[in-house]
């Protein structure tokens, strides 16, 4: 997919948002396995990357050397990619029905045996380093692909993230983009009630990154940030702080820590489906 040939139609992206939320909800509900709220907080970022034409990829040639690399380092939310990858033909849509089943290829946490998945993730704090390995290799090989790494805010507790942040800035990996999904929650509570992360954007800045903070559910803010990411040649890596709502789109799950891996009962499922009939994304 060529970046320049895609018309960034916000209405279309909003429709994809609603579609992805519905698909992901049913994917998880079929087996009652998965993480809906963590996936929803980064849904617009993923939709924009794939359907906004920012990510260069070829589902017919998933290992093309010049493809952009996308790593969902918050591996518990990588299942949000599964409907998208099926939609682009990386594998059959039937695989979505076989999520976690013995005859399926899609698992709770992703790994690179799945077409379209670049790296195993699920243990936090690895994806950004792996993404920087890609970035360093791209620079030495004279290739122009980029690494996009979706990192969770809770993941920023891992020291390895900051080891990598130093590395990326020292080696001027401006082909690496960290998208920090700042939904404000880890499993037990709000991050600021566990161990404080704020001021988070300033921390990335202090580590030598360019930063931009956006509303992670507003395409009007996401698209300019990604425009900047794909044009970046500043010599500094870019961190997009994507302020988001965990569980965005299902009101009773929104910003409630206990819904991290809790499954709704029948009544709650019906209510969630009803809410998903209305698109929660405004612009």
């Amino acid at each position: 997919m060529k970046q320049e040939s895609v018309k960034r139609d916000i209405q279309l992206l909003k429709e994809r948002s609603q579609w992805l939320r519905k698909e992901l909800f049913e994917l998880v509900m079929r087996t009652k396995k998965g993480h809906v709220p963590s996936s929803y907080s980064c849904a617009e970022i993923l939709v924009a990357l794939f359907y906004g034409g920012y990510l260069r990829f070829d589902s017919k040639d998933p290992r093309s050397p010049t493809r952009d690399r996308l790593i969902i380092s918050k591996g518990h939310a990588a299942m949000a990619l599964y409907p998208i990858l099926a939609d682009f033909g990386y594998y059959s849509k039937d695989e979505l029905l076989k999520f976690t089943k013995s005859n399926g290829i899609l698992r709770f946490y992703p790994d690179n045996s799945i077409p379209g998945i670049e790296s195993i993730t699920g243990s936090l704090g690895h994806g950004l380093g792996i993404g920087c390995g890609y970035g360093y290799a791209a620079k030495t090989d004279g290739l122009h692909y980029r690494s996009f790494v979706v990192v969770s805010d809770g993941e920023c507790y891992e020291g390895s993230v900051w080891e990598t942040a130093l590395f990326a800035s020292h080696y001027q990996l401006d082909n690496v983009v960290a998208i920090v999904d700042r939904n404000g929650l880890c499993i037990m509570d709000e991050t600021e009630n566990c161990v404080r992360l704020d001021p988070l954007e300033e921390k990335w800045k202090a580590f030598g990154w360019d930063t931009v903070a956006i509303n992670g559910h507003s395409y009007k803010e996401i698209l300019p940030a990604l425009d900047r990411a794909v044009a970046n040649s500043s010599g500094k890596p870019l961190a997009i702080i994507s302020n988001s709502v965990k569980g965005k789109g299902i009101s009773f799950m929104e910003s409630k820590a206990r819904w991290h891996n809790k499954m709704p009962n029948d009544e709650e499922m019906a209510r969630a489906r009803e809410e998903l009939m209305v698109n929660c994304i405004l612009d």
């Binding site: 690895h126 950004l128 920087c132 390995g133 890609y134 990598t164």
Partner: peptide
Amino acid sequence: NMIDVAAGMAL
């Protein structure tokens, strides 16, 4: 970080 970067390079 060294190991994770090495993984990306090896990939």
